[in-house]
Nucleic acid binder design. Structure first.
Lengths: 146, 146
DNA sequence: TGTGAAACTGCATCGTC
DNA sequence: GACGATGCAGTTTCACA
């Protein structure tokens, strides 16, 4: 994990479909060398995968919310969580609430229906997202490069 | 946006670095046709980009938390948010709190330091993530395909 | 839009340092 | 580890349906 690996991570976090050749040009290193470094970063688990970022609104999902939930019924609630397509992110947390969910639904009505199902598992509190300033900022500190 | 587009989105959300040829095999369609559909999905903004998923712990970031914040000082707080590398996701929300942040830091000590800076902008409440059940589940309902 | 064929480009691999 | 060369795989482009 040196400076070059950081550059690779930064570039590929920006655009996961960039070709290895283009990357090798950007960081002034041969193509096989970049390929080998990428392979190792994947192997070590530094890179866990590559995902397309999709637009919820273009997929007719207009409501995003965070749901905090306090449940005793953990086993059952986790099964419910796995099976609910509305839940995009699912975290266990410390504090008054033991679960935090990011939920994306078509409208506020479908969110309401989801919350009613949630409330069978415990007490919940919901924060509706009004707007997203940014999402998924790079974890790599040194993001400055060409 | 037909069934084939859904398949393309599902596949590319799963693995953004898949080749178009491999995709064209999976969905039994010619490679130029898939390329053209991909191009349109990007152009329409359905696909907003492609990101590598990095492992926080492999980058020596062991603490993830969600910070709820109530601030009157919105302009200044948003500038602070833009400039803070610890903040990975930044949302404006309805309810008692008007901001929700996902924060990733090295340790609980660095989280504490960050929270102290936050508290100059208003009242905050923090939920520390104990574990992540899943993250970034597909928005495309029909995720079943080979 | 979708297809098939041809030219081009990028990638995996190997030998070398 | 990184480089340069090479054969193969993937992509782009185009004429045609």
């Amino acid at each position: 994990m040196d400076q070059i690996d950081n550059q690779i991570l930064s570039i590929i976090h920006e655009n996961a479909r960039i070709t290895v050749s283009e990357m090798s040009r950007k960081i002034a290193m041969s193509q096989p060398a970049v390929t080998e470094r990428l392979r190792k970063l994947e192997e070590q688990g530094v890179i866990k995968g590559y995902k397309a970022v999709l637009s919820p609104s273009k997929l007719i999902k207009y409501t995003t919310a965070f749901v905090l939930l306090k449940s005793n019924n953990c086993k059952e609630f986790e099964e419910f969580g796995e099976a609910s397509p509305e839940i995009i992110d699912f975290y266990r947390t410390s504090g008054e609430y033991n679960y935090l969910l990011k939920v994306v639904t078509a409208t506020s009505e479908t969110l309401e229906a989801f919350l009613e199902r949630c409330n069978t598992f415990g007490f919940s509190s919901t924060l509706v997202v009004l707007s997203t300033r940014f999402e998924d900022k790079s974890l790599v500190a040194d993001a400055k490069l060409l």
